[in-house]
Design a protein around this nucleic acid. Structure first.
Lengths: 233, 233
DNA sequence: CAAAATACATACATTCGTGCATGTTTGCAA
DNA sequence: TTGCAAACATGCACGAATGTATGTATTTTG
């Protein structure tokens, strides 16, 4: 109808993002229409097209609003160069992320959408790349802690820290992936410590090593050309 | 144009499923049109509507063709009641699944579609429930092996086998989820044993226990109001 | 206080995908 | 050999969603 004040406009934008979370979660991103989102917010498509260029932009803004807090949670960590119990820090970080997911309804909705209610194709390539970058920076943090663990002596020198980081990422991602399908905050909160403790214990007991099995302990000559060669036939 | 023989008709059906894998993977299930699938197979929409009721039926058939082999792979296992090294069997089973994924291009395509290129909403509810059932039967197999491990003495008596099974499911699902994004068959094949060994080692070293933390061992008083309270500040 | 920009609602044209109905040729059975 | 049904291709009507253009009232600015 009429123009709103700046604050009210910002509120409508938030309302649209809230509606997008609900509608995307219920109908899927591709299957949901912008009219659905607008109507869920008590508005019309005009409001949506005023605040966002198209559906992809709306989706991107929705993701940003939920993942930026998570980014800061990880980036705010100290340089991780002088912690005395790096594996303990790693475990606590994992638990913290899971507890945060268990307590933040917005994060739950967005993760449910990203995991199960959206198709990552060309039009969402920008969002996908941003997620990729965030994941990479997070992985660097984990690798730094793992290498610190090597220095401290909690892990052997030839630990494949990159692989261990991939394993941790896969574990946590799988937990969140499955949990958002049937959210039970109490259960996740109760089981998160045991989950992470189990993973860290496995990391200590059977850490993945570099130069896995092939190119065995001491073959004839190490005349591999590429340098960054995979190793497995 | 004309009628084909029964065998040729079956071949065109397979060709349509092949095309669906490619097109769904490239454009996403919701964003892909049946004309795309038909054209990718060198046919028209008429052929699609002859063999499948609609897009959901095509998707379901595509999933079945790829996951049924996996089902048999798990169901063909022996009753798991008298194995002498249940955790070893569990580890080998996990490795086998990962190796199978690394070597089967069809399974890779379908998993990529299911994980990243499709929206599980109402119209695909049937497929989602079937996946759920398959997962449950698989989980029962894992739990059976874990309880066998308790009997054998590899795990303590109060091991939370259901939670451990959830952890394994999350771990494997996370590995596959991430791997299909950037498939590298050699790398997955090379790292799968170390991954599974690490998990089993963690299971042995720090198995999750029942009656986790709440109703705790012996704190002052368990007078938390909510009942389903998180517990970890 | 007037002009311009804001914050939407409304209306419209266009495209696109689906579902079905129909056409057409050929394999298969009697 | 005839008839029927399989195995598609083709064409059409319908709805639905998008993008944009326009209208409108209010807010802000000078």
């Amino acid at each position: 109808m009429a123009r709103k004040t700046r604050e009210e406009a910002a509120e409508t934008r938030e309302a649209l993002l809230d509606a997008a979370e609900q509608v995307f979660r219920a109908k899927g991103v591709a299957h949901a229409t912008l009219a659905d989102v607008a109507h869920a917010a008590g508005l019309t498509r005009g409001a949506v097209y005023w605040h966002f260029r198209d559906k992809a932009a709306l989706f991107e803004a929705m993701c940003d609003r939920a993942t930026l807090p998570m980014e800061t949670m990880f980036d705010a960590r100290r340089p991780a160069a002088d912690v005395e119990d790096p594996l303990g820090v790693l475990r606590d970080n994992g638990v913290r992320v899971l507890l945060h997911l268990a307590s933040d309804a917005r994060m739950q909705a967005v993760f449910d959408v990203v995991f199960h209610k959206c198709e990552f194709t060309d039009d969402l390539a920008a969002v996908s790349e941003r997620h990729q970058q965030e994941d990479d920076t997070c992985q660097q943090q984990v690798i730094a802690l793992l290498e610190r663990a090597v220095v401290v002596g909690d892990l052997p020198a030839d630990t494949d820290t990159a692989l261990a980081a991939d394993a941790m990422k896969a574990f946590m991602l799988g937990i969140m992936h499955e949990w958002v399908r049937e959210p039970d905050a109490a259960r996740l909160a109760a089981t998160a410590p045991a989950m992470m403790a189990m993973f860290i214990a496995g990391l200590k007991a059977a850490p993945p090593r570099r130069a896995p099995l092939v190119a065995a302990a001491k073959p004839r000559a190490a005349r591999v050309a590429g340098g960054t060669h995979a190793g497995a036939d």
